[in-house]
Design a protein around this nucleic acid. Structure first.
Lengths: 191, 191
DNA sequence: CAATATATGGAGGGTGACTCCGCTTTGTCA
DNA sequence: TGACAAAGCGGAGTCACCCTCCATATATTG
Protein backbone atom coordinates (compact mmCIF):
# COMPACT_ATOMS: atom_id res chain seq x y z
CA UNK A 1 0.00 0.00 0.00
CA UNK A 2 1.44 3.32 -1.08
CA UNK A 3 -0.21 5.18 1.73
CA UNK A 4 1.22 2.89 4.37
CA UNK A 5 4.73 3.24 2.97
CA UNK A 6 4.41 7.00 2.90
CA UNK A 7 3.11 6.91 6.45
CA UNK A 8 6.27 5.16 7.48
CA UNK A 9 8.83 7.26 5.64
CA UNK A 10 7.18 10.60 6.27
CA UNK A 11 5.92 10.54 9.84
CA UNK A 12 3.68 13.59 10.27
CA UNK A 13 4.35 17.28 10.12
CA UNK A 14 5.14 18.69 13.55
CA UNK A 15 1.96 20.76 13.81
CA UNK A 16 -0.11 17.86 12.55
CA UNK A 17 1.32 15.58 15.22
CA UNK A 18 0.59 18.18 17.85
CA UNK A 19 -3.03 18.41 16.73
CA UNK A 20 -3.36 14.66 16.52
CA UNK A 21 -2.22 14.27 20.10
CA UNK A 22 -4.44 17.03 21.41
CA UNK A 23 -7.45 15.59 19.66
CA UNK A 24 -6.88 12.13 21.14
CA UNK A 25 -6.39 13.61 24.58
CA UNK A 26 -9.50 15.76 24.45
CA UNK A 27 -11.47 12.92 22.88
CA UNK A 28 -10.72 10.53 25.69
CA UNK A 29 -11.89 13.15 28.17
CA UNK A 30 -15.05 13.72 26.18
CA UNK A 31 -15.77 10.02 25.81
CA UNK A 32 -15.26 9.54 29.53
CA UNK A 33 -17.63 12.36 30.25
CA UNK A 34 -20.34 11.76 27.66
CA UNK A 35 -19.82 8.24 26.43
CA UNK A 36 -18.88 7.10 22.95
CA UNK A 37 -21.57 9.29 21.47
CA UNK A 38 -19.86 12.53 22.45
CA UNK A 39 -20.13 15.28 19.83
CA UNK A 40 -17.18 15.20 17.45
CA UNK A 41 -17.58 18.84 16.51
CA UNK A 42 -17.37 19.61 20.18
CA UNK A 43 -14.22 17.54 20.58
CA UNK A 44 -12.65 19.37 17.66
CA UNK A 45 -13.63 22.67 19.17
CA UNK A 46 -12.31 21.79 22.61
CA UNK A 47 -9.06 20.64 21.03
CA UNK A 48 -8.80 24.00 19.30
CA UNK A 49 -9.01 22.65 15.78
CA UNK A 50 -11.65 22.77 13.07
CA UNK A 51 -13.89 19.82 12.32
CA UNK A 52 -12.04 19.27 9.05
CA UNK A 53 -8.81 18.63 10.92
CA UNK A 54 -10.42 16.11 13.20
CA UNK A 55 -11.99 14.24 10.31
CA UNK A 56 -8.77 14.12 8.32
CA UNK A 57 -6.94 12.48 11.19
CA UNK A 58 -9.88 10.29 12.16
CA UNK A 59 -12.22 9.58 9.30
CA UNK A 60 -14.80 8.06 11.62
CA UNK A 61 -15.87 8.13 15.22
CA UNK A 62 -14.56 4.61 15.61
CA UNK A 63 -11.11 5.60 14.35
CA UNK A 64 -10.96 8.19 17.08
CA UNK A 65 -12.26 5.72 19.64
CA UNK A 66 -9.59 3.24 18.60
CA UNK A 67 -6.90 5.87 19.06
CA UNK A 68 -8.24 6.89 22.45
CA UNK A 69 -8.35 3.26 23.60
CA UNK A 70 -4.93 2.29 22.27
CA UNK A 71 -3.17 2.23 25.62
CA UNK A 72 -5.87 0.32 27.45
CA UNK A 73 -6.06 -2.29 24.73
CA UNK A 74 -2.34 -2.90 24.68
CA UNK A 75 -2.46 -3.33 28.42
CA UNK A 76 -5.26 -5.85 27.95
CA UNK A 77 -3.08 -7.82 25.58
CA UNK A 78 -0.43 -8.09 28.25
CA UNK A 79 -2.98 -9.25 30.77
CA UNK A 80 -3.92 -12.03 28.38
CA UNK A 81 -0.31 -13.12 28.12
CA UNK A 82 0.04 -13.11 31.88
CA UNK A 83 -3.12 -15.14 32.40
CA UNK A 84 -2.12 -17.68 29.79
CA UNK A 85 0.90 -18.39 31.94
CA UNK A 86 -1.13 -18.71 35.14
CA UNK A 87 -1.48 -22.25 36.55
CA UNK A 88 -5.26 -22.57 36.98
CA UNK A 89 -6.99 -22.44 33.60
CA UNK A 90 -10.46 -21.91 35.01
CA UNK A 91 -9.42 -19.16 37.42
CA UNK A 92 -7.47 -17.51 34.62
CA UNK A 93 -10.54 -17.51 32.40
CA UNK A 94 -12.70 -16.10 35.16
CA UNK A 95 -10.23 -13.31 35.77
CA UNK A 96 -10.03 -12.62 32.04
CA UNK A 97 -13.79 -12.26 31.76
CA UNK A 98 -13.82 -9.74 34.57
CA UNK A 99 -10.96 -7.85 32.97
CA UNK A 100 -12.71 -7.87 29.62
CA UNK A 101 -15.89 -6.53 31.11
CA UNK A 102 -13.94 -3.87 32.93
CA UNK A 103 -12.35 -2.66 29.73
CA UNK A 104 -15.73 -2.53 28.02
CA UNK A 105 -16.80 -0.03 30.62
CA UNK A 106 -14.04 2.48 30.04
CA UNK A 107 -16.54 4.67 28.21
CA UNK A 108 -20.31 4.63 28.31
CA UNK A 109 -21.67 3.04 25.18
CA UNK A 110 -18.47 1.16 24.48
CA UNK A 111 -20.07 -2.30 24.33
CA UNK A 112 -22.38 -0.98 21.65
CA UNK A 113 -19.56 0.63 19.70
CA UNK A 114 -17.36 -2.44 19.89
CA UNK A 115 -20.12 -4.89 19.00
CA UNK A 116 -20.95 -2.72 16.02
CA UNK A 117 -17.30 -2.51 15.00
CA UNK A 118 -16.91 -6.28 15.14
CA UNK A 119 -19.33 -6.54 12.25
CA UNK A 120 -16.87 -4.90 9.89
CA UNK A 121 -13.27 -6.13 9.65
CA UNK A 122 -12.22 -2.83 8.04
CA UNK A 123 -13.35 -0.86 11.04
CA UNK A 124 -10.29 0.47 12.89
CA UNK A 125 -11.95 -0.17 16.22
CA UNK A 126 -12.44 -3.76 15.16
CA UNK A 127 -8.79 -4.28 14.33
CA UNK A 128 -7.61 -2.52 17.46
CA UNK A 129 -9.81 -4.80 19.55
CA UNK A 130 -7.83 -7.78 18.33
CA UNK A 131 -6.46 -8.36 21.86
CA UNK A 132 -9.99 -8.91 23.10
CA UNK A 133 -10.72 -11.57 20.53
CA UNK A 134 -7.37 -13.29 20.69
CA UNK A 135 -7.20 -13.30 24.47
CA UNK A 136 -10.69 -14.72 24.78
CA UNK A 137 -10.03 -17.33 22.15
CA UNK A 138 -6.84 -18.54 23.80
CA UNK A 139 -8.11 -18.54 27.36
CA UNK A 140 -11.33 -20.27 26.47
CA UNK A 141 -9.53 -22.92 24.47
CA UNK A 142 -7.12 -23.53 27.30
CA UNK A 143 -9.97 -23.87 29.78
CA UNK A 144 -11.68 -26.30 27.44
CA UNK A 145 -8.48 -28.32 27.07
CA UNK A 146 -8.14 -28.42 30.84
CA UNK A 147 -11.71 -29.69 31.09
CA UNK A 148 -12.64 -26.65 33.16
CA UNK A 149 -15.57 -25.69 30.92
CA UNK A 150 -17.85 -27.40 28.43
CA UNK A 151 -16.05 -28.47 25.25
CA UNK A 152 -18.77 -27.21 22.92
CA UNK A 153 -18.42 -23.55 23.87
CA UNK A 154 -17.59 -21.13 21.07
CA UNK A 155 -15.07 -18.48 22.21
CA UNK A 156 -16.78 -15.88 20.04
CA UNK A 157 -20.02 -16.55 21.92
CA UNK A 158 -18.24 -16.02 25.19
CA UNK A 159 -16.95 -12.68 23.96
CA UNK A 160 -20.40 -11.72 22.77
CA UNK A 161 -21.85 -12.66 26.10
CA UNK A 162 -19.39 -10.57 28.07
CA UNK A 163 -20.12 -7.67 25.77
CA UNK A 164 -23.81 -8.01 26.33
CA UNK A 165 -23.33 -8.26 30.08
CA UNK A 166 -21.29 -5.10 30.07
CA UNK A 167 -24.04 -3.51 28.00
CA UNK A 168 -26.67 -4.64 30.48
CA UNK A 169 -24.70 -3.47 33.49
CA UNK A 170 -24.53 -0.03 31.90
CA UNK A 171 -28.26 0.45 32.12
CA UNK A 172 -28.73 -0.58 35.74
CA UNK A 173 -27.58 2.07 38.16
CA UNK A 174 -25.72 -0.25 40.51
CA UNK A 175 -23.62 -1.49 37.67
CA UNK A 176 -20.60 -3.06 39.38
CA UNK A 177 -22.53 -5.33 41.68
CA UNK A 178 -24.95 -6.07 38.87
CA UNK A 179 -22.16 -7.06 36.55
CA UNK A 180 -20.81 -9.48 39.12
CA UNK A 181 -24.19 -11.10 39.63
CA UNK A 182 -24.88 -11.43 35.94
CA UNK A 183 -21.44 -12.79 35.32
CA UNK A 184 -21.89 -15.44 37.96
CA UNK A 185 -25.29 -16.29 36.53
CA UNK A 186 -23.53 -16.93 33.26
CA UNK A 187 -20.64 -18.95 34.58
CA UNK A 188 -22.78 -20.95 36.97
CA UNK A 189 -25.87 -21.22 34.84
CA UNK A 190 -29.43 -20.80 35.91
CA UNK A 191 -29.81 -24.05 37.82
CA UNK B 1 -55.72 13.76 37.75
CA UNK B 2 -57.77 16.30 35.87
CA UNK B 3 -56.25 15.29 32.57
CA UNK B 4 -57.16 11.65 33.07
CA UNK B 5 -60.76 12.54 33.88
CA UNK B 6 -61.00 14.71 30.81
CA UNK B 7 -59.51 11.90 28.77
CA UNK B 8 -62.33 9.68 29.91
CA UNK B 9 -65.24 12.01 29.48
CA UNK B 10 -64.04 13.60 26.26
CA UNK B 11 -62.50 10.83 24.16
CA UNK B 12 -60.82 12.47 21.17
CA UNK B 13 -62.12 14.53 18.35
CA UNK B 14 -62.89 12.43 15.29
CA UNK B 15 -60.12 13.90 13.15
CA UNK B 16 -57.65 13.57 16.01
CA UNK B 17 -58.52 9.92 16.45
CA UNK B 18 -58.06 9.34 12.75
CA UNK B 19 -54.63 10.96 12.85
CA UNK B 20 -53.65 9.05 15.98
CA UNK B 21 -54.49 5.75 14.33
CA UNK B 22 -52.68 6.58 11.11
CA UNK B 23 -49.58 7.66 12.99
CA UNK B 24 -49.44 4.43 15.00
CA UNK B 25 -49.95 2.38 11.86
CA UNK B 26 -47.26 4.18 9.89
CA UNK B 27 -44.95 4.17 12.89
CA UNK B 28 -45.07 0.43 13.30
CA UNK B 29 -44.19 0.07 9.62
CA UNK B 30 -41.32 2.50 9.98
CA UNK B 31 -40.00 0.84 13.15
CA UNK B 32 -40.17 -2.54 11.43
CA UNK B 33 -38.26 -1.18 8.49
CA UNK B 34 -35.68 1.01 10.19
CA UNK B 35 -35.68 -0.03 13.81
CA UNK B 36 -36.64 2.01 16.84
CA UNK B 37 -34.47 4.87 15.63
CA UNK B 38 -36.66 5.63 12.60
CA UNK B 39 -37.07 9.32 11.85
CA UNK B 40 -40.12 10.76 13.60
CA UNK B 41 -40.44 13.63 11.16
CA UNK B 42 -40.50 11.05 8.43
CA UNK B 43 -43.21 9.06 10.19
CA UNK B 44 -45.27 12.21 10.56
CA UNK B 45 -44.77 12.98 6.91
CA UNK B 46 -45.68 9.48 5.78
CA UNK B 47 -48.78 9.63 7.96
CA UNK B 48 -49.74 12.87 6.24
CA UNK B 49 -49.54 15.02 9.36
CA UNK B 50 -47.17 17.72 10.55
CA UNK B 51 -44.50 17.02 13.14
CA UNK B 52 -46.45 19.10 15.64
CA UNK B 53 -49.37 16.71 15.43
CA UNK B 54 -47.19 13.68 15.98
CA UNK B 55 -45.53 15.26 19.00
CA UNK B 56 -48.81 16.30 20.56
CA UNK B 57 -50.14 12.76 20.43
CA UNK B 58 -46.81 11.20 21.35
CA UNK B 59 -44.54 13.50 23.32
CA UNK B 60 -41.62 11.14 22.97
CA UNK B 61 -40.33 8.41 20.73
CA UNK B 62 -40.99 5.93 23.51
CA UNK B 63 -44.63 6.97 23.78
CA UNK B 64 -45.03 6.17 20.11
CA UNK B 65 -43.16 2.90 20.52
CA UNK B 66 -45.42 1.94 23.39
CA UNK B 67 -48.49 2.63 21.26
CA UNK B 68 -47.10 0.64 18.34
CA UNK B 69 -46.30 -2.31 20.60
CA UNK B 70 -49.58 -2.31 22.48
CA UNK B 71 -51.05 -5.35 20.77
CA UNK B 72 -47.93 -7.47 20.98
CA UNK B 73 -47.50 -6.70 24.65
CA UNK B 74 -51.05 -7.61 25.53
CA UNK B 75 -50.57 -10.86 23.71
CA UNK B 76 -47.43 -11.44 25.73
CA UNK B 77 -49.41 -10.97 28.91
CA UNK B 78 -51.76 -13.72 27.85
CA UNK B 79 -48.86 -16.01 27.07
CA UNK B 80 -47.65 -15.47 30.62
CA UNK B 81 -51.04 -16.46 31.99
CA UNK B 82 -51.10 -19.57 29.84
CA UNK B 83 -47.60 -20.62 30.89
CA UNK B 84 -48.35 -20.08 34.55
CA UNK B 85 -51.05 -22.71 34.18
CA UNK B 86 -48.74 -25.16 32.39
CA UNK B 87 -47.70 -28.23 34.40
CA UNK B 88 -43.89 -28.16 34.08
CA UNK B 89 -42.46 -25.06 35.77
CA UNK B 90 -39.03 -25.35 34.19
CA UNK B 91 -40.34 -25.94 30.67
CA UNK B 92 -42.76 -23.05 31.13
CA UNK B 93 -39.91 -20.76 32.13
CA UNK B 94 -37.81 -21.85 29.18
CA UNK B 95 -40.65 -21.18 26.79
CA UNK B 96 -41.25 -17.83 28.41
CA UNK B 97 -37.66 -16.77 27.94
CA UNK B 98 -37.84 -17.63 24.26
CA UNK B 99 -41.08 -15.74 23.93
CA UNK B 100 -39.63 -12.74 25.71
CA UNK B 101 -36.60 -12.69 23.45
CA UNK B 102 -38.85 -13.00 20.43
CA UNK B 103 -40.86 -9.98 21.45
CA UNK B 104 -37.68 -7.99 22.01
CA UNK B 105 -36.89 -8.54 18.37
CA UNK B 106 -40.07 -7.10 16.94
CA UNK B 107 -38.14 -3.98 15.98
CA UNK B 108 -34.43 -3.51 15.59
CA UNK B 109 -33.04 -1.63 18.57
CA UNK B 110 -35.91 -2.61 20.80
CA UNK B 111 -33.76 -4.16 23.55
CA UNK B 112 -31.91 -0.88 23.80
CA UNK B 113 -35.11 1.16 23.89
CA UNK B 114 -36.73 -1.06 26.47
CA UNK B 115 -33.68 -1.26 28.71
CA UNK B 116 -33.45 2.51 28.59
CA UNK B 117 -37.15 2.88 29.36
CA UNK B 118 -36.89 0.60 32.38
CA UNK B 119 -34.67 3.19 34.03
CA UNK B 120 -37.54 5.63 34.28
CA UNK B 121 -40.90 4.56 35.78
CA UNK B 122 -42.60 7.56 34.14
CA UNK B 123 -41.59 6.39 30.70
CA UNK B 124 -44.69 5.16 28.85
CA UNK B 125 -42.70 2.36 27.28
CA UNK B 126 -41.70 1.27 30.77
CA UNK B 127 -45.26 1.08 32.00
CA UNK B 128 -46.47 -0.67 28.89
CA UNK B 129 -43.77 -3.30 29.32
CA UNK B 130 -45.30 -4.30 32.62
CA UNK B 131 -46.30 -7.71 31.19
CA UNK B 132 -42.63 -8.46 30.59
CA UNK B 133 -41.68 -7.75 34.16
CA UNK B 134 -44.67 -9.38 35.76
CA UNK B 135 -44.53 -12.48 33.59
CA UNK B 136 -40.83 -12.98 34.25
CA UNK B 137 -41.26 -12.40 37.95
CA UNK B 138 -44.05 -14.93 38.26
CA UNK B 139 -42.53 -17.61 36.09
CA UNK B 140 -39.12 -17.35 37.72
CA UNK B 141 -40.63 -17.51 41.18
CA UNK B 142 -42.66 -20.52 40.24
CA UNK B 143 -39.60 -22.28 38.83
CA UNK B 144 -37.73 -21.48 42.02
CA UNK B 145 -40.55 -22.82 44.16
CA UNK B 146 -40.55 -25.98 42.09
CA UNK B 147 -36.83 -26.31 42.64
CA UNK B 148 -36.25 -26.14 38.90
CA UNK B 149 -33.71 -23.32 39.16
CA UNK B 150 -31.39 -21.89 41.78
CA UNK B 151 -33.23 -20.20 44.62
CA UNK B 152 -30.98 -17.16 44.70
CA UNK B 153 -31.84 -15.93 41.23
CA UNK B 154 -33.28 -12.45 40.95
CA UNK B 155 -36.11 -12.29 38.38
CA UNK B 156 -35.04 -8.80 37.36
CA UNK B 157 -31.60 -10.18 36.53
CA UNK B 158 -33.16 -12.83 34.36
CA UNK B 159 -35.08 -10.19 32.48
CA UNK B 160 -31.97 -8.11 32.08
CA UNK B 161 -30.10 -11.11 30.80
CA UNK B 162 -32.70 -11.94 28.18
CA UNK B 163 -32.67 -8.34 27.07
CA UNK B 164 -28.94 -8.37 26.70
CA UNK B 165 -29.04 -11.64 24.79
CA UNK B 166 -31.59 -10.20 22.42
CA UNK B 167 -29.34 -7.18 22.07
CA UNK B 168 -26.34 -9.38 21.33
CA UNK B 169 -28.22 -11.50 18.83
CA UNK B 170 -29.12 -8.32 16.96
CA UNK B 171 -25.53 -7.58 16.12
CA UNK B 172 -24.60 -11.01 14.81
CA UNK B 173 -26.00 -11.67 11.37
CA UNK B 174 -27.18 -15.21 12.08
CA UNK B 175 -29.30 -13.97 14.92
CA UNK B 176 -31.83 -16.73 15.46
CA UNK B 177 -29.34 -19.55 15.81
CA UNK B 178 -27.08 -17.26 17.81
CA UNK B 179 -29.83 -16.39 20.20
CA UNK B 180 -30.55 -20.07 20.79
CA UNK B 181 -26.89 -20.83 21.52
CA UNK B 182 -26.48 -17.88 23.85
CA UNK B 183 -29.70 -18.73 25.63
CA UNK B 184 -28.57 -22.28 26.20
CA UNK B 185 -25.22 -21.02 27.43
CA UNK B 186 -27.12 -19.02 29.98
CA UNK B 187 -29.52 -21.70 31.12
CA UNK B 188 -26.89 -24.43 31.18
CA UNK B 189 -23.99 -22.33 32.36
CA UNK B 190 -20.46 -22.36 31.13
CA UNK B 191 -19.39 -25.65 32.64
C1' DC C 1 14.68 32.08 1.31
C1' DA C 2 11.92 30.25 -2.10
C1' DA C 3 9.19 26.35 -3.62
C1' DT C 4 6.30 22.67 -2.58
C1' DA C 5 4.04 19.32 -0.16
C1' DT C 6 1.21 19.26 3.88
C1' DA C 7 -2.12 20.69 6.86
C1' DT C 8 -5.63 23.90 8.51
C1' DG C 9 -10.31 25.76 9.93
C1' DG C 10 -14.56 27.19 9.34
C1' DA C 11 -18.34 28.08 6.28
C1' DG C 12 -21.92 25.42 4.59
C1' DG C 13 -25.10 21.55 3.25
C1' DG C 14 -27.74 17.76 4.95
C1' DT C 15 -30.61 15.30 8.45
C1' DG C 16 -33.21 14.80 12.41
C1' DA C 17 -35.46 16.38 16.93
C1' DC C 18 -38.66 19.25 18.71
C1' DT C 19 -41.48 23.90 19.44
C1' DC C 20 -44.54 27.59 18.55
C1' DC C 21 -48.42 29.85 16.96
C1' DG C 22 -51.74 31.58 13.39
C1' DC C 23 -55.22 29.07 11.11
C1' DT C 24 -58.80 25.24 10.43
C1' DT C 25 -61.99 21.80 11.86
C1' DT C 26 -65.20 19.83 14.98
C1' DG C 27 -68.67 19.48 18.42
C1' DT C 28 -72.22 21.88 20.84
C1' DC C 29 -76.04 24.52 22.06
C1' DA C 30 -79.33 28.04 21.43
C1' DT D 1 -79.24 25.55 11.40
C1' DG D 2 -75.60 28.45 12.23
C1' DA D 3 -72.31 30.56 14.99
C1' DC D 4 -68.93 30.25 18.58
C1' DA D 5 -65.64 28.07 21.68
C1' DA D 6 -62.60 24.39 22.20
C1' DA D 7 -59.74 21.25 20.15
C1' DG D 8 -56.63 20.21 16.82
C1' DC D 9 -53.52 21.10 12.95
C1' DG D 10 -49.23 21.85 10.11
C1' DG D 11 -45.25 23.61 8.76
C1' DA D 12 -41.89 27.10 9.28
C1' DG D 13 -38.27 27.76 12.31
C1' DT D 14 -34.46 26.72 15.83
C1' DC D 15 -30.99 23.90 17.41
C1' DA D 16 -27.54 20.21 17.46
C1' DC D 17 -24.82 17.14 15.11
C1' DC D 18 -22.38 15.08 11.13
C1' DC D 19 -19.34 15.63 7.56
C1' DT D 20 -17.11 17.96 3.21
C1' DC D 21 -14.76 21.28 0.54
C1' DC D 22 -11.34 24.52 -0.53
C1' DA D 23 -9.03 29.02 -0.05
C1' DT D 24 -5.53 29.95 3.05
C1' DA D 25 -1.61 29.15 6.09
C1' DT D 26 2.47 26.54 7.78
C1' DA D 27 6.29 23.35 7.88
C1' DT D 28 10.06 21.26 5.47
C1' DT D 29 13.58 20.89 2.22
C1' DG D 30 17.05 22.10 -1.19
Amino acid sequence: MTTAEAAKTRPLRADAQRNYDRIVLVASEAFTEKGTGASLDDIACRAGVGPGTLYRHFPSRDALLAAALKGALEELGETARRLLAAPDARAALDEWLVELARHLRIYGGLPESVAQAFQDPENPLCTSCQPMRVGTEQLVERAKAAGAIRADVDPADVGTLIGSLAWAAERRGDSDATLQRLLSLLTEGLR
